[in-house]
Amino acid sequence: MQLETPSRSVVPRVAAAAWFAVALVVLAIGFRQAIFLVPTEATMGNVQRIFYYHLPHAILGMVFPYVNCAASLAFLYWRRRDPWKALGADALAVASAEVTVIFVTIGLLTGSLWAKPAWGIWWAWDARTTTYLILWMLYVSYLIARKFSGGNDEGHTLAAVISVFAAIDVPISFMAIRWWRTQHPAPVFGGDGSLDASFYPAVWWNIAGWALWGFLVLGLRYSLERRRQRIQEEAALEAIEASLEITQ
């Protein structure tokens, strides 16, 4: 197997540091907008400000599963054709699954904190909450299955298959649960529960900030996994070379 030489270039590090700095600045602006500048919501008061954290996490929690699904499909495609690229896709898949779980967890927790004052209960089995819980369960079971099936190529294949199943299951769950019951406010943009334009700055700055943050964490986790894979491959190559020396 042909391995790329580990890059000693400082460019990725500088880029990551710059990205981190930009993310922090945008998050700071978002915080200022959400907590101090945007007008207080009429019926719910200051409690509604958690929405500026709930919405970005909920939206991004729906974006990272697509990354996971695309990476898993790429893994299945490259599995026999280009093993080293396939491992890269697998690293992206595991990174995006972990980031999905984190974002959906935060989305569920902030939603629950908001539901208590808004609806009077911590947890309503309404359509969107339930769908998010299913989404969370699917990706937690994906990560558990990865752990159970070992870190070898076989485990990666099984994980990719599970990821495809999860990606297909989410829209079906969404439809089924939507029919089952609905209590969640209508979609914020372009729906009945539309948001007044004065709230937009806080919403957009926070979506941008948490997206920058999420993709930074995704990239860091990816490069960590990639580094682990490289060490593993080098160790395997050394073991093969050592065994060849003994037989000679």
């Binding site: 699917l138 099936s149 649960i177």
Partner: peptide, 20 residues
């Protein structure tokens, strides 16, 4: 089949996928 804890793995995968 070839995973550790396969008795546990089946419900862990089957239940969330089967929710709809």
């Amino acid at each position: 089949l070839r995973a550790k804890n396969r008795e546990l793995l089946l419900p862990l995968l089957l239940f969330p996928i089967s929710v709809p």
